[in-house]
């Protein structure tokens, strides 16, 4: 009996350990980013690092200002949200409320395919279709720009926005809609005036998730944004926080390499803020 008890405790211990592995991984990532990211910020000075507008990591007198990257990431994400959210939101209303069953199945399949396409494939299509298209349409020397990145990001965040919004819209109690219909509102009016406001926390969560996806995307953006460390301009070559890390990592050393880790730390802080916002909205939509 005692042996049996000890054995059960042992198994319990193993499962407890497996449960805690997730927490361990989060701690590992946080600790590593902080340890790797702090030295360069100390050496460069936090204000100089965050607000200097010049990034020249390989110059003879190097300058490590990441304001261009921060602003590019913020503008790029904002642009993607402005373009992507209306389309994603309206599609989700159509799928959750208006579409006949058969169309719904087909379109949902298409949306999940969109979610599954690898980011390098988006980057490739962007490079071959969007970039030359923008060059010709706006008569600029190179189409690889913030604008191209915004369009690619807008497309890439569509599935997250659509799926989370659909879940929120479907969770709206049937009685709310029935009451509105009984009072003489048409179905479309009901969906927009009753269902959407009732699902607003969930839809907000969808937008925040989109923000997280857009700000964290690296490869697709790297292939279409030109990658020069300029202050952001809609039709200029730009570099994001993510691409700043990825583009110099392979040949960096010394302070330059440490500065890249600091950029990752800044990106990580952004993501943690977004995660907290996401959790807030998800929790509220459950209540």
């Amino acid at each position: 009996m005692k042996k049996q008890r000890a054995f059960e405790d042992f198994v319990h211990g193993i499962f407890l350990f497996l449960g805690l592995v997730t927490v361990g991984f989060v701690l590992l990532i946080t600790v590593y980013l902080v340890i790797a990211g702090i030295p360069a910020i100390r050496e460069i000075g936090i204000l100089n690092f965050l607000f200097n507008i010049k990034w020249a990591s390989t110059a003879s007198e190097p300058s490590y200002g990441i304001l261009p990257f921060i602003l590019t990431s913020v503008y790029g994400t904002a642009g993607a949200i402005i373009l992507g959210v209306p389309v994603g939101f309206l599609t989700s209303v159509y799928l959750a409320k208006l579409a006949p069953e058969k169309i719904r199945t087909v379109v949902s399949g298409a949306v999940s395919l969109l979610a599954g396409i690898p980011s390098v494939v988006y980057g490739l299509v962007g490079m071959m279709v969007l970039v030359p298209g923008i060059r010709r349409l706006f008569h600029i020397p190179d189409g690889a720009s913030l604008f191209a990145a915004i369009i690619v990001l807008a497309i890439m965040i569509l599935p997250s926005i659509i799926n989370v919004s659909i879940t929120a819209l479907e969770a709206v109690p049937r009685e709310y809609e029935d009451a509105s219909l009984a009072l003489g509102a048409t179905p479309v009016e009901t969906y927009f005036r009753v269902s959407v406001p009732a699902a607003k926390s969930g839809i907000a969560a969808a937008v925040v998730l989109g923000v997280g996806r857009a700000i964290g995307e690296a490869m697709a953006v790297m292939m279409v944004s030109g990658n020069a460390p300029n202050m952001p301009e809609l039709f200029g070559s730009v570099r994001f926080l993510t691409t700043a890390v990825a583009s110099e990592m392979s040949y960096s050393s010394g302070l330059q390499r440490q500065a890249l880790f600091s950029i990752a730390l800044v990106l990580f802080l952004f993501i943690m803020l977004i995660n907290a916002a996401l959790n807030f909205f998800l929790k509220r939509s459950k209540e």
């Binding site: 927490v23 989060v26 964290g216 890390v245 990825a246 880790f261 990106l267 990580f268 993501i271 995660n275």
Partner: peptide
């Protein structure tokens, strides 16, 4: 099956959500 402590469950689930929100470039770096 095992967890009885609600706070611990919340911590583990929050950690899992955090992990799924971290961009892949950061995973690459770490």
């Amino acid at each position: 099956e095992y967890a009885k402590n609600k706070r611990l469950v919340a911590v583990i689930e929050y950690a899992a959500e955090t992990l799924s929100g971290i961009p892949s470039i950061i995973y690459g770096l770490v």
